[in-house]
Amino acid sequence: MPDAKVIPMCSGGSDIPGGDEAGRRRSASSTAVGDDERSTAGQDGVLSDEAVAEALAFVRRRVLGDYGVDEFGFDPDLTDHVFLPMLRPLYRSWFRVEATGLHHVPSESGALIVANHSGTLPWDALMTTVALRDHHAVGRYLRMLGADLVFQLPMVGTLARKTGQTLACNPDAERLLGGGDLVGVWPEGFKGIGKPFSDRYKLQRFGRGGFVAAAMRTGSPIVPCSIVGAEEIYPKLADVQPLARLLGLPYFPVTPFFPHLGPLGTVPLPTKWYIEFGEPIDTTSYSRGAEHDPMLIFNLSDQVRETIQQTLYRLLAQRRSVFFG
């Protein structure tokens, strides 16, 4: 770790408050980050003029309330300048995520990203967000659909809205997809993220397939996304149900390090991650009203599930070590 690490505030020359999607494209991001680091290194760890100016401009926008927020409460300015920079070190150095198949994610239109869920805490969702914003050709924001619980919690619910997440319900999903946004769903829900370590990489049931209906109604492609590595970050050995019920949580995990090591036990293990985006599944070829056919919904939902499961098996077969890939 260098003494003063620059947190990249902004990609090259963006002066748009609230940074609308069309205005700032992430393609510049990797180079901009590099530039920042280089200019810093050249000045003995002192921030460059530009970095200071950008940081100040950001602070000014925040103090004066001069930034844009969409109707879901998504705040791109905050996401790009505070939230994503906090996640990037984890993405790069801790989990060393390798994202592949990003060309399967459309650049302009809406699409539904469906992924497997694991890891007790939703780090998989956060890392997928970073992958799409930083490494997709045009740097797309992922708008995820979250459980009720997320939006009931103080702080967490607010943060979720500000970073672009919304409640998992069909009106919201269809509105986002119809508006050309990239929507992320984790259809296994709590069954997936809270499953015991012994069940790792076994996909759970895929809810009621509401996500398929939303994609069909808006004619958006479904992109299956398989994530390897997240299962081992907190090996959940047991579940203290009485405590979970007391706290109003879906599960209370016991891992080799939690809860007996306290806060230290919440540090995720540095596993090596792979995120693979698969070939999009077209939903436009069905006749009108097909989304009302439950059999079709179940079949399509199964097809997505099977694709993700098979990809997981393939990625696991290639992996030689949990921590070194």
């Binding site: 409460g73 009720d148 409640l167 919201d172």
Partner: peptide, 12 residues
Amino acid sequence: SPRDPAIFTEDM
């Protein structure tokens, strides 16, 4: 309510 959709239409 936190369980509301983000945007209400008249028929909700």
